[in-house]
Amino acid sequence: MKDLSALLAGLLFGLGLTVAQMTNPQKVLDFLDITRQWDASLALVMGSALVVAAIGYALRFKMRKPFYATGFNLPRRLKVDRSLILGSILFGVGWGMVGLCPGPAVASLVYATQPLLYFIIAMLIGMFVSKRLQSK
């Protein structure tokens, strides 16, 4: 059931990203381009996702545990530290350069193009390298 739940959630996520056209990097760049021809669509995607997700996270106060797991898994880190800020700045620069973040990049893999493959390989290397550095 755990695997099926994850599969279902993954399906909905990929469906949502594609329906919202977040798999079109130009659409994301047009959202980030506030000084020229702004396309506010991404804000609405986040807005409606936030409202529905908030219901899910609020349900933890009503449920003792998730249906198919022993407990809720929430990030333990609470402090705003240097790595949060530094990592977010780096991520923003990469995101602003081509308009792809991890979700749409991975979801689009099913219709992969050569540039997308380059992006994903570089992204996985970036993840791997910084994980290595973190664990030292």
Partner: peptide, 10 residues
């Protein structure tokens, strides 16, 4: 861009 996205998000 891919490298920065991967490194930054981790």
């Amino acid at each position: 861009a891919g490298f920065l996205v991967g490194a930054g998000t981790v």
